[in-house]
């Protein structure tokens, strides 16, 4: 346990907020000022009548996309972490093997298949998307919660118990904070996948940033496709870099052995 951290040379990183700001700014720019780039799009698609997607405003599409992913994220985080905690307690231990296996098996399901399968059950619209996102996004979070909680050293848990912490206090003050980095990584995976899956929403009747892409493909309008693709890529990069910042701040607070 020697002080090895001080041996590292200081890295010349700019503020970790650099990338999120860059991507975020580009995202806002694209959403608000899409029509300003009309000449560029005209060059890409000289024959179409209309080159800037304007059936719905881009910022509205962004809002809907964020809404869908956001709702799914909140629900999956709450349910996923709760489920992970529940099966790692002694009372829920019976369900641990099954839940663990299911969570890792579920990774093999292609998200598009899950989305497609939710339509027969739930019809068209925004609801099947949210449900499919929730179901699919649950798995990385549960898996990582399980992994994170199980990694917490038993000696530490015994020490907490022996010091006089109640099981709830141990969970809140010791286990969850120590498992937090891994759980956060799972949330990041879940949200990233969901942003991509939600884009397919246009095929099931929801409306979000996938619309221009799909509409462009269907109508053969490359400009639409580029606009949609650009916006959604920027969204994904912004969110991902935000998570990177979050993970970085967690990591630098302590490095668990």
């Amino acid at each position: 346990m020697s002080n090895s951290l001080s041996a590292l040379p200081p890295r010349k990183i700019a503020s970790p907020w650099l990338w999120p700001l860059v991507w975020g700014a580009l995202l806002l720019l694209s959403v608000v000022a899409m029509s300003a780039a009309e000449p560029l799009f005209r060059w890409i698609e000289p024959d179409a009548r209309q080159v800037v997607y304007d059936r719905v405003d881009f910022y509205v599409l962004l809002g809907r996309h964020l809404l869908v992913v956001g709702i799914a994220a909140v629900v999956t985080i709450v349910v996923g972490v709760a489920a992970g905690v529940a099966v790692t307690r002694t009372r829920g231990a019976d369900f641990l093997p099954l839940v663990g296996q299911l969570a890792s098996l579920g990774q093999t399901f292609p998200p598009v298949a899950v989305l497609a399968l939710s339509v027969p059950v739930l019809g068209f619209g925004t609801l099947p998307i949210i449900v499919a996102l929730m179901l699919y996004g649950l798995l990385p979070i549960v898996r990582n919660t399980l992994a994170g909680l199980q990694e917490v050293d038993n000696t530490i848990k015994s020490a907490a118990h022996a010091m006089g912490m109640t099981p709830t206090q141990t969970l809140r003050q010791v286990e969850l904070p120590l498992a937090a980095p891994v759980i956060l990584a799972g949330i990041r995976t879940s949200v990233t996948i969901n942003i991509a899956t939600a884009a397919l929403g246009a095929t099931v009747g929801a409306s979000n940033l996938g619309d221009p892409i799909i509409s462009g493909i269907v109508n053969g309008n490359m400009a639409y496709v580029v606009q949609g693709a650009l916006t959604i890529a920027l969204l994904a990069l912004t969110v991902d870099s935000l998570f990177e910042v979050l993970q970085h701040s967690l990591r630098s607070r302590f490095t668990a052995p």
Partner: peptide, 8 residues
């Protein structure tokens, strides 16, 4: 093995 909490 001390059982100190590594995150504190």
């Amino acid at each position: 093995h001390t059982g100190l909490f590594p995150h504190w």
